[in-house]
Design a protein around this nucleic acid. Structure first.
Lengths: 167, 167
DNA sequence: TTATATTATTAGGCGTGTCAAATAAATTTC
DNA sequence: GAAATTTATTTGACACGCCTAATAATATAA
């Protein structure tokens, strides 16, 4: 089995669109995809061939379009990146929703898994410890600087409880 | 005067490379650019034609390559985005330098001016108020939540002093 | 200064991703 | 169920940006 080729930004957009349309109306038609991505339907046909060739979409001419499990997995990954970025822009940077969504849409294709993971952790930290003072602890995540003192980091406490539960 | 066409990620990379090579050795040669961008020199020639056509690079066959003032301005903008992202990854997300630089390199082309500005402000905040508690104040920037209490946000105090100086 | 090595350019090809126009299939309406 | 409409596909074109191979210019060494 060879390593799957990196998807282009364009194909990632198609996966994302197909997933979203499917979750709104069950399955996708080329026209909905075209409308959503602001692209002509001949471009959609082309993209669907490419996705089908990679085993990411179920495509038969004139038929409804769905994602394969593999395609679905990749779509969810793109969406995860999108949402992580958007949440970060809104929660931490106080960017307004529309702008945050647009920015996430553009950046979701170039952000690495490592950065996304850090961002997810950081947003989680900010939402739990609004007083801040984030400190990254390798292998654990962000905690506030006073994790050991009374009234310290709630995240850190959760962590402690969790591990004692696991005992 | 028409609105300048958006530069592609690829051309932005060339601008950035030309600027960096020039600041290290005075001017750029096609070979240095090719090495830096891991591209063949025929690709460099093509890119130089495109940049020259847009008035961003001074290009004459077999001659040294420099940027026009316009090209220099755009190069500095790309570099600003790169550095803002890298600093954020390092300072806030505790990502290691190499990874931070790689990630910045990939994302610098898709990040909007608004997001960059917020990130710059946020990093500045984190560096000044390491205890955190960032709060965005429209038209001002990030300050900590205790800006009015004793021992509160140094950034906010600076701001106050600054405006009294201006009086 | 002539031969050699290096560097740059041109020419042509390939993959991606878009479009418009022509055609074909499916759906809706009468 | 036939006609009209909508939707989808094919075909061919074009821009980008990379590549290889062949050629041309420049720089280096003898």
């Amino acid at each position: 089995m060879t390593v799957a080729e990196e998807l282009s930004a364009s194909l990632e957009d198609y996966l994302e669109a197909i997933h979203h349309i499917a979750s709104e109306k069950g399955a996708s038609k080329a026209k909905d995809i075209a409308l959503r991505l602001k692209v002509r339907s001949s471009s959609v046909t082309g993209a669907l061939h490419a996705l089908a060739k990679r085993g990411l979409a179920n495509y038969a001419p004139y038929d409804l379009i769905t994602l394969t499990p593999e395609g679905e997995k990749l779509a969810l990954d793109v969406i995860h990146r999108h949402e992580a970025l958007r949440d970060f822009f809104i929660t931490v940077l106080s960017v307004d929703k529309t702008e945050a969504d647009d920015a996430a849409c553009k950046m979701e294709h170039s952000v690495s898994p490592e950065i996304i993971e850090r961002i997810v952790q950081f947003v989680k930290f900010v939402q739990t410890c609004p007083l801040g003072g984030a400190e990254w602890i390798e292998g654990k995540g962000f905690f506030c600087e006073h994790k050991d003192s009374e009234g310290g980091c709630p995240l850190y406490k959760e962590e402690k409880q969790d591990s004692s539960k696991e005992q």
